[in-house]
Design a protein around this nucleic acid. Structure first.
Length: 365
DNA sequence: CATTATATCCGTCACTATCC
DNA sequence: GGATAGTGACGGATATAATG
């Protein structure tokens, strides 16, 4: 950040205007590093879900609409007035729409091999965005109870405000959606970051497990079953048939390795259920890690946003002071500098045009 | 303190994509 | 074509907060 000095009234006004315009424009060009938004691989532009999204509605997704949408959603979700008043809604101002799109993209990419609507993607996005508006908001997309209901309300409001309501994204071609185990050609996967998140998640889960009451093992408890979280056993050790007896391990020489043909239907079913149980656990851990990752990034971006706003306020203050000094020593009309003039001058510079337009949209000028 | 509401976790089912 | 992994959806169980 450069400093703005004032010397003579005539030259200072123009110099201050030019310098501050550049600085404001530079500050407003601070963009989200979208590569950090998801540990999942990116898709080619032509296959990117947003390429098929209609542009936002004619009325831009401004601070006012974002604030109204979030407030309305949170209110309808009965999160309470306290949560609303404490919500840093201004955090949505500049890049709310872009953030929604980015988070939706991440979600779409994660589920690229499945047919998912933008509404579902927005539910994931809103999970993150709702956490900004209400730090106490809990829950995650996919949960059909309170959290998901709140998220859905926020998602609907966000979608309506951003003009994307009801858009169903097409399925990504399967050849570019090999997200299951390994990334496809040209795709990257931050396994280290993801593994760290998973590890943290597992530690938290282990803590939760340690605080739980002992397993119930009551058969009448329903299909919810007992707290069977003991991951210290191997799969075979844990495989138990419907009668509680261990299942037969794979018989040697019974065809293809892993073949289950020699097992009874009950044993096969028990194996399938056991594997699916483990798969569901892993899937949930993965999803929680992913959401946690997004939430952490939102927190970082909020912090960055606050810093930029503070910087902008300081520049405003300096500009006002400089203009006052100029007008006190010379009464030429050209020294009556307004923010709109600065933004306009910044827009004339092609390198700053986009930033100035964005800033102008936010300020409503 | 009992009841109700909400949040979270879990097992299971259904389905798709992928592997062999 | 069977086996498997992955994941959304569903419903039950439990924990916790809110309420009267």
């Amino acid at each position: 950040m450069s400093s703005v000095q004032s010397s003579s009234p005539e030259t200072t006004a123009a110099a201050v205007a030019a310098t501050l315009a550049a600085e404001i424009a530079a500050a407003s060009t601070a963009t989200i590093d979208t590569s950090l938004l998801s540990p999942f691989p990116s898709l080619p532009d032509e296959q990117h879900p947003t390429a098929l999204l209609p542009p936002p509605a004619a009325s831009a997704f401004t601070a006012a609409t974002a604030a109204a949408a979030i407030s309305s959603a949170m209110a309808s979700a009965q999160l309470g007035e306290a949560a609303l008043t404490s919500a840093p809604v201004t955090a949505f101002e500049a890049d709310a729409h872009d953030q929604v799109i980015e988070i939706m993209n991440s979600y779409q990419q994660t589920n690229a091999h499945r047919r998912r609507s933008s509404v579902e993607a927005a539910a994931a996005a809103s999970s993150v965005l709702a956490s900004i508006a209400n730090s106490n908001a809990k829950g995650y997309p996919g949960d059909h109870h309170g959290g998901a209901q709140q998220n859905s309300a926020a998602a609907a409001a966000l979608l309506a405000a951003s003009g994307m309501h009801g858009v169903v994204l097409p399925t990504i071609p399967s050849e570019s959606a090999s997200l299951r185990n390994t990334p496809g050609p040209g795709e990257s996967f931050d396994t280290a970051q993801f593994a760290a998140l998973q590890s943290l998640q597992q530690q938290q889960q282990q803590q939760q497990h340690d605080n739980r009451p002992p397993p119930l093992n009551i058969s009448s408890r329903g299909k919810g079953g007992s707290y069977d979280d003991d991951d210290s056993l191997s799969d075979d050790e844990k495989l138990v048939g419907g009668n509680g007896m261990p299942l037969t391990p794979d018989a040697p020489g019974s065809g293809r390795p892993g073949s289950l043909r020699h097992l009874t239907p009950d044993e096969r079913r028990a194996r399938r259920l056991q594997r699916n149980r483990l798969a569901a656990k892993e899937c949930r851990q993965k999803k929680k890690a992913y959401i946690g990752n997004l939430e952490a990034q939102v927190a970082d971006l909020q912090e960055e946003n606050a810093g930029l706003r503070k910087e902008l306020e300081e520049l405003h203050a300096r500009l006002t002071l400089s203009a006052m000094r100029s007008s006190s020593s010379a009464t030429t009309p050209t020294l009556d500098i307004k923010m709109s003039d600065i933004i306009a001058s910044a827009a004339e510079d092609p390198s700053n045009a986009a930033a100035a337009a964005k800033r102008a949209r936010i300020s409503g000028d």
